[in-house]
């Protein structure tokens, strides 16, 4: 039973980004130009560990029109662990601003996945587990303050419950990112 549940979840996880990529590529006016690839690496604080400034890992890969990012964050103790992963895909914009300089904006979609495991006593085998995911629109707003060094926000609003979404409430996953692009 668990196997069936898992395979269903993973099917959703992999199908939805593929579906999104398809919609980007299907529109010829938005054909992705992947020339001049840029790699981004950095660290982040995520809303999945809200209240504690725990650094995570951020990786980005992008062309001039289309970009993606992967990030992960986690904590572990002798009694529990928490792991979160996020993938975002963006259509990118590179507007110029006379006051603050180079900015990178993006609009796309993201996928957030997390897993929690815990046990009541140290002697117990890790038994209790919970995993879930959220998918929804995401945005990027990065400011290049010195050369390739940037600071910015990536936020994904997960569509989990239709009623809550209508009243502008989402399962969000937001990241404050510090990184460098080269």
């Amino acid at each position: 039973m668990t196997t069936i549940k898992l395979s269903r979840n993973f099917r959703k996880i992999f199908m939805l980004p593929l579906l999104l990529c398809g919609t980007f590529y299907a529109d010829t006016t938005n054909a992705a130009n992947l020339s001049g690839m840029e790699v981004k690496v950095g660290t982040l604080f995520s809303s999945s560990t809200r209240g504690r400034s725990i650094p995570g890992i951020y990786l980005g890969l992008e062309g001039s029109d289309l970009g993606g990012s992967f990030s992960t964050i986690g904590v572990e103790s002798t009694l529990s662990y928490f792991s979160a992963y996020q993938i975002n895909l963006f259509k990118l914009f590179h507007p110029k601003n006379n006051f603050i300089g180079k900015v990178e904006a993006g609009l796309g979609a993201g996928l957030f996945f997390y897993q929690i495991g815990y046990r009541d006593n140290l002697e117990d085998a890790p038994g209790q587990k919970k995993r879930n995911f959220a998918f929804g629109p995401s945005i990027r707003a990065l400011w290049y303050f010195y050369g390739g060094a940037f600071v910015g926000i990536e936020s994904m609003l997960g569509l989990r419950n239709l009623f809550f979404n209508i009243v502008l409430s989402y399962q969000d996953s937001t990241q404050l990112i510090f990184g460098i692009g080269f």
Binding site: R50, G51, S53, L107, P137, S138, I153, S155, L176
Partner: peptide, 12 residues
């Protein structure tokens, strides 16, 4: 659509 991030207490 936007996100708030904070530096020390992580009120993201």
């Amino acid at each position: 659509i936007g996100g708030v991030g904070s530096l020390f207490r992580n009120n993201s």
